[in-house]
Design a protein around this nucleic acid. Structure first.
Lengths: 115, 115
DNA sequence: TTCTTTATCAACCTTATAGTTGATTACACC
DNA sequence: GGTGTAATCAACTATAAGGTTGATAAAGAA
């Protein structure tokens, strides 16, 4: 059952990582291409250390990866991790929507029978 | 700019709501149909009050709605709210994937030119 | 009315998160 | 070597989240 726990913990980290407007802005920026910590920190009115912490949260969640370019460590978005999140959400969203359609059908049938 | 802040706060609440295995299990259960607090709390080894708090988090995030049936207050999943989350994620995932494909094309062209 | 069920409220504790400042590592350039 | 830049580590504070217990409200059933 360790695999299940691992997967749950990974979902915890990924959803928690996106539950912050700063980190979502970082994701939005990185979707347009790689960037360094200093470049990412520039638009924010907070210290570089704080942004570095946010980046570590995203990295630990698997949403971004880092590479090495001299003394720089550019961040890259990991679309596959984002895809896993939409897959999780869609699983239950689609089941629920199917339920709703089924209910609509039942209600429609009842309405027909009343005529 | 209040609209943007509202939307950001709504995303905060929704992603945070899903960043917990108990609340994800509640969503999974509710995807198969409505349920009361007691029914939802039964599988968990925690107090009913704790589950009630989790449900309030999901409700405040707009992921579920409540109705009234005598002394019961059944919970219903709100698929539209889930859809908004996948829409947000997919926006940046698709941009990033397009970037990757473009990079692949460039690398492929360079490789061709080297022949 | 009294009793039971459903669900929430209130107070409290523990742990985790977001931010700060100051020191430190690691690499590049001269 | 010595200097400047990129990035992180460490320690600390304040706020919020997840859990508990105990009391409370509200609707049904006896």
């Amino acid at each position: 059952m360790q695999e299940l726990d691992d997967r749950e913990a990974a979902l915890d980290r990924a959803f928690l990582a996106l539950a912050d407007p700063v980190r979502r802005a970082l994701v939005a920026r990185l979707s347009r291409g790689p960037a360094t910590v200093n470049e990412l920190a520039e638009p924010f009115s907070m210290t570089k250390q704080a942004v570095s912490k946010h980046i570590q949260v995203l990295e630990h969640a698997g949403l971004i990866t880092r590479s090495r370019d001299g003394q720089r460590r550019p961040c890259h978005l990991a679309p596959a991790a984002l895809e896993e999140l939409t897959a999780w959400i869609d699983t239950y969203r689609l089941v629920a929507e199917r339920q709703f359609r089924r209910l609509d059908t039942v209600l429609g049938t009842l309405k027909e029978e009343q005529k």
